[in-house]
Design a protein around this nucleic acid. Structure first.
Length: 270
DNA sequence: AGTGGCCCCTGGCGGC
DNA sequence: TGCCGCCAGGGGCCAC
């Protein structure tokens, strides 16, 4: 579920609530969420750790602690909840981080999320490509990495190329750039690359301004710490199959590209 | 190198 | 109402 704008929103909220707070205890209810250490080590090492800083790289949340880094990837349905002290764990809450005045609960319906506890985060984060909202993501740099023989959609979803884009924002960016998702990278012109570069930054910034995209109605729906996002109300193609294209009024089509449901306008995107 | 298939899970929805 | 198959915002692995 969560892509860069959703993770960024959660990061900002966690930063406000957790910075400077100390983990007093940890309770693990489903240990398969924890990677890189055993659950007993995880609990032992986290006790007395103070949260110094929370940041983001791609779709990873990075908790900088006194002696460790805790990296969290929410995958499809992971989320964090702030609960009252001494409240019991509800269904789908797999880990409780107990602080002085509240509990931070990791909730994940589909259980795909991963939490790593490491001394050196580079082992995991070095695999990620460029950060699309950083100053390094220039048009020149984008053109430099835009190579290979795959489809443009598969390229944009590849976290080792650009870190943080997911299915929603890729479809939205390709629509803005008027490029069909199946188009091969080798067939993209310079002026289109410039449009796409601009579109990627635009859709991500809008997503953050709207505090993320909340689709669907179920318990696995994206929710930041405080509320649902608002970006679902402003999507141009994603989740709009058969609805009219905002440019040409022809129906938006849904096809399969790179094993993902893909929304686009066959008339506007060539 | 790139793609497609399958897997990790649970739940919601549409069709019958 | 119930059952069944399909779908889902992510990503790792494996065979071709």
């Amino acid at each position: 579920m969560p892509e860069l704008p959703e993770v960024e929103t959660i990061k900002r909220q966690l930063q406000k609530r957790l910075r400077g707070e100390t983990i007093l205890d940890v309770k693990v209810f489903f240990e398969k969420i924890i990677f890189s250490v055993s659950d007993s080590t995880f609990i032992k090492d986290l006790k007395k750790q103070r949260v110094q800083e929370i940041s983001r790289r791609g779709k990873y949340l990075i908790f900088k602690l006194t002696d460790y880094y805790m990296l969290v990837h929410l995958r499809m349905s992971g989320k964090f909840l702030i609960k009252e002290k001494d409240s019991i764990n509800q269904k789908h809450e797999h880990i409780h981080f107990i602080f002085n005045n509240f509990i931070l609960a990791y909730h994940d319906v589909r259980k795909f999320g991963r939490i790593y506890l490491v001394k050196d985060p580079s082992i995991i984060l070095d695999k990620l490509g460029i950060e699309p909202l950083s100053e390094k993501f220039t048009l020149l740099e984008f053109k430099k990495i835009l190579k290979g023989t795959k489809s443009i959609k598969a390229f944009l979803l590849d976290q080792s190329e650009i870190a943080g884009l997911g299915n929603i924002y890729v479809d939205e960016a390709l629509f803005l750039a008027k490029i069909a998702p199946k188009r091969l990278i080798s067939a993209i012109y310079d002026d289109e690359a410039a449009l796409l570069h601009h579109a990627i930054i635009k859709v991500l910034k809008k997503g953050i301004d709207n505090m993320g995209t909340s689709l669907g109605k179920g318990k696995s729906n994206y929710k930041n710490i405080e509320s649902l996002g608002k970006n679902q109300n402003e999507l141009l193609v994603f989740n709009r199959e058969n609805e009219p294209c905002i440019n040409c009024k022809n129906p938006i089509k849904k096809i399969r590209v790179a094993q993902r449901g893909t929304h686009y306008c066959p008339f506007c995107q060539k």
